[in-house]
């Protein structure tokens, strides 16, 4: 200890400080241990599983899982999953922009909470039930086809279920609430007078959107994207229930590798490749300070 001899209280204070520090350390250690046990340990186990360490030094076998990912049907599915994730996210943003703008600016204030709860209702319900509700609506003998047939709009029932369309509808329906909530925070914070100022200076509607609304809410849009796109790309239930046999997504392949093929190394490697790609996207996103601020609210 390096305390000043001229100040008799200094050693005592230092002792108290180090005691406090010990208490802090113990208090901090418990949640940290929990986080490690729940987060890092499973991921570590998964990482070990993705490599066949026993085959060292034959790297061809050690990395067989990863080699399979790169040189097979799996890569196109991975790319397709990410593409679906991005496309559905863009779809959600296209809907969320006008909807949240309306709720934040034109919805009568007493109805605002009701509107938000209604729009985010799927959040409160079971994920699998939500998917099956669309089966019930889109099936050959489902609600939509029945109505269309009865009203004479179509002569034959439409093939809606197990298509790209039903997949897209299901995804948008389930993930739109997340995007709406994220966007709404940005939209509500957007200073209406900025819109008025742009308008007053001669900007039309499109210019106002481009020059004021978009830049002021972009961070919220990116935050919403980061929150949902990985979940969509890695979704299992929705493609399983609403997607066709021909358009599987990565999570279904991982599940198959574990449960059908029983190739744990491949499954773990697939998981890790997917995780890395998702983390890369997140890392790019959080380099933006504004986006970090938005994400902190989650």
């Amino acid at each position: 200890m390096n305390s000043d001899q001229g100040q008799p209280t200094e050693p005592a204070r230092t002792a108290a400080t180090s005691r406090n520090r010990l208490v802090d350390l113990l208090l901090g250690a418990a949640p940290l241990a929990l986080a490690i046990a729940l987060g890092v340990v499973p991921l570590g186990v998964l990482l070990l599983e993705s490599v066949e360490l026993g085959a060292y030094p034959d790297f061809g076998v050690v990395l067989a899982g990863y080699r399979a990912v790169g040189s097979s049907v799996y890569l196109p599915v991975l790319i397709r999953s990410l593409a679906v994730g991005i496309a559905v996210t863009v779809g959600c943003l296209l809907i969320a922009y006008p909807v949240t703008y309306w709720v934040a600016n034109h919805c009568p204030p007493p109805l605002r909470v009701a509107a938000l709860v209604t729009l985010t209702l799927p959040l409160w319900l079971n994920y699998v039930v939500l998917n099956y509700s669309w089966v019930w609506i889109l099936a050959r003998g489902g609600l939509l086809n029945t109505v269309l047939l009865e009203t004479g709009v179509v002569a034959e029932p439409l093939e809606l279920l197990f298509t790209e369309l039903s997949l897209a509808i299901g995804f948008v329906y389930i993930y739109l609430p997340y995007v709406i909530l994220t966007m709404y925070v940005s939209m509500e914070r957007l200073d209406r007078r900025l819109i008025e100022a742009a308008h007053d200076l001669g900007a039309g509607r499109i210019r106002v959107f481009r020059d004021v609304i978009l830049p002021e809410t972009l961070a919220g849009a990116i935050a919403g994207t980061l929150i949902v796109y990985a979940r969509i790309a890695g979704a299992f239930a929705t493609p399983e229930i609403l997607g066709g046999a021909g358009n599987q997504l990565i999570a279904q392949l991982i599940s198959d590798a574990y449960l059908q093929i029983l190739d744990y190394q491949l499954a773990a490697a697939l998981s890790y490749v997917f995780l890395s790609v998702v983390l890369l996207g997140l890392a790019v996103g959080v380099t933006q300070r504004d986006v970090r601020e938005e994400l902190k609210q989650w």
Binding site: D191, R193, L194, E196, A197, A198, H199, D200, L201, G202, A203, G204, D211, V212, P215, E216
Partner: peptide, 27 residues
Amino acid sequence: ASDRATNLVFQDLVLFPHLTVAQNIAY
């Protein structure tokens, strides 16, 4: 408002935060 030959100075000014001084004036 966009087609009127009047321009406002707002109470809280409401300068465009993501634009420079010159870009604000040139808007």
